[in-house]
Amino acid sequence: MPENPVLEGAAEPETLDLIHELLAETFALFRLGAADAMQFELAVVEIGANIIEHSRASGVVTLRLELEVFDDRIVANYSDDGNPARVDLDSVALPDDLAERGRGLAIAINVLDELGYRRSGGKNHWHLVRNLPTT
């Protein structure tokens, strides 16, 4: 089995393109189904965009994304050294229809089987899991 795909670098808007590329390479390598790949990618990119947008106070924030593919699930683990995320995942809900922002976490929760966040060692850690159909 190949090494887990990893992306590490500055949390900048251009990093979203690199996240998409890493996911595409991973999906091709492990032959994930289109629906599972699309929904997992949506969640991973939403969390990545939130990290990029909300973790910076000043200076460069370093982001790390590691993917793991198992027979029954795909996992993404993010860590970053930015500001603590001010989020209560238990209270996340979709905003009203006219809101221009604030849907990312709600969408991620809806397409994932597990979404976790913790702050440890001066870093934010996000854990994303989507279960895969077993054959």
Rank of each mutant, 00 (worst) to 15 (best):
A28V: 06
L42I: 00
L63Y: 05
A35K: 03
Y78E: 05
I51P: 04
L94W: 03
T62N: 08
A57L: 11
D90V: 02
H54G: 08
E53R: 14
E53D: 14
L89W: 08
T26L: 01
R86Y: 13
V60F: 07
S79Y: 00
V92E: 10
R73Q: 14
A34I: 05
D90I: 06
H20A: 07
A93V: 05
V61T: 04
A85N: 10
A28H: 04
V61Q: 04
S58H: 14
S91T: 15
R31K: 08
D90L: 13
A28D: 06
E66L: 05
A57D: 11
R86I: 08
V44D: 00
E53H: 11
A93S: 09
D80S: 07
D80P: 05
Q39A: 14
P95T: 09
I47S: 10
A43M: 10
A35I: 11
A28E: 14
L29D: 12
E46A: 10
S91V: 12
D71L: 12
E66P: 02
G82D: 07
F70H: 15
H54P: 01
E53Q: 15
L42K: 00
L89T: 09
V69L: 07
A37C: 03
R56V: 10
R56H: 15
N83D: 06
E25I: 10
S79D: 08
P84A: 14
